[in-house]
Design a protein around this nucleic acid. Structure first.
Lengths: 238, 238
DNA sequence: GCTCAAACCTTACAGCGTAAGCCTGATTTC
DNA sequence: GAAATCAGGCTTACGCTGTAAGGTTTGAGC
């Protein structure tokens, strides 16, 4: 089967001297070769630049200067690669905790770190949001946040409950702020501004405060309500 | 009229007596013919039954007893169909408001209605969550919630802010409760329970409270914190 | 120089959304 | 009653997707 049995015995496809995109052949085992880290970084860069829909194995291979299937040598399938992107992203949510901060300040910083992470990769966050964090890094992150609450003196049950409630808020907020970036190639045409102005007065009046300029303030007041509410729940208890 | 007209006179492709799946030919213009409503309902049923990934035009056509392309006669593309599903779902979030309820009770009921809607179609909600509600029904729904806050005496700015904050919470909560249903065909293997027990003590201790049995209580306490916080913000203001 | 495994490439396949065009039966019009 | 129109389907085909299967190159170790 090794014999080509066709007139084009040597010239494979187009030009025999076609230069490899991957610079020189000798670099394969070197720094420029593929690796899990380089693949994940390129994938995230591609998503950041062109959106989630642009991330296909072929397109990513193009970006890396290799064929699509070469990626499968480092990740068994695309789902594993996506998990690596989630981990990559989650690493950017980490905030160094100063020892003098109390639990409220720690929660506040962690929350802002999470939001900053989402805003750094707005096109990827919607994917992040709908996938459970069950990688090791994800579990470690969750454990850390719960630890803040436990060290503050909350019970296991309280820590679990308040962790979730804050997580709900953070996920929803980041999703809302990044939703515009995630849309696929096409969707139905939106309702026109004129229609809103005529038929939906409440929304029309509130619309200015839905602009990105207000995102930060909205996020912060809601977060403070939650933290204050959590604190208050403990004071009312003991 | 019940004559099957079985031997197709032209016999185009394979077997001349191939019976149409769509029962009788005469039913085309009748109640069993396609319509936007029937297509959307079948699509939602399919997603409920087999998950988001199962919803393809071909599969849906199979479900409806027609070819995939027939759907395009009623929806210009799949994005429009998905928008119809969003509207269909959103209709189930509506709650009849009693006049004697104050704004807190109204918000509470609306929030529970939203959650119930998500839980009725857990496999579809993750799609719902990452798409903006810019259909007419979606805009009307938003307008209604903002109206509750405006009628309660909040300013446009406050109404916009609190609407969003509650929306963040609701989206995140519903997403978390439904996330397990949305996963595609395959994903990376999760972290084992033994690993969690050994390395992540806080999470292991909190794990019992992450079970579905606690979802409702967690949701409610968080919601009450938000509503109380919103109420408190007004009292501190005037 | 030979062997071998890792790293990468080629080919192929089933399934996706959908553009383009065809066919058919019911309704409308004369 | 016959012809014309047209909504409501069907068929085919195209470029895309993830990935299974197997072939080819490369450098290291002997």
């Amino acid at each position: 089967m090794a014999t080509k049995a066709s007139p084009k015995k040597t010239s494979p496809k187009v030009s025999p001297a076609a230069p490899r995109k991957r610079s020189a052949a000798g670099e394969r085992g070197r720094g420029l070769s593929l690796s899990r880290e380089r693949i994940a970084a390129a994938a995230m860069a591609l998503v950041d630049r062109e959106g989630l829909a642009a991330l296909s194995t072929r397109r990513l291979g193009e970006e890396l200067g290799c064929e699509a299937m070469s990626i499968y040598h480092h990740y068994p399938n695309k789902a594993h690669l996506m998990d690596a992107l989630i981990d990559l992203m989650l690493g950017q949510a980490q905030v160094a905790m100063e020892p003098q901060w109390d639990w409220r300040e720690r929660l506040r910083r962690a929350a802002h770190g999470f939001r900053a992470m989402a805003l750094r990769h707005p096109a990827f966050f919607p994917f992040f949001a709908v996938h459970r964090l069950n990688t090791r890094a994800g579990v470690a992150y969750i454990d850390g946040i719960i630890g803040i609450l436990r060290e503050a003196g909350f019970s296991d049950r309280e820590a679990a409950t308040y962790f979730r409630e804050i997580g709900y808020y953070l996920t929803g907020a980041a999703l809302d702020e990044t939703a515009g970036y995630a849309k696929g190639p096409s969707s139905a045409e939106p309702v026109s501004n004129e229609t809103i102005a005529v038929h939906f007065k409440h929304l029309a009046a509130a619309a200015p405060y839905f602009q990105p300029a207000h995102f930060q303030a909205t996020f912060e007041t809601g977060l403070e309500i939650l933290i204050a509410g959590i604190e208050h729940s403990r004071q009312g208890q003991d």
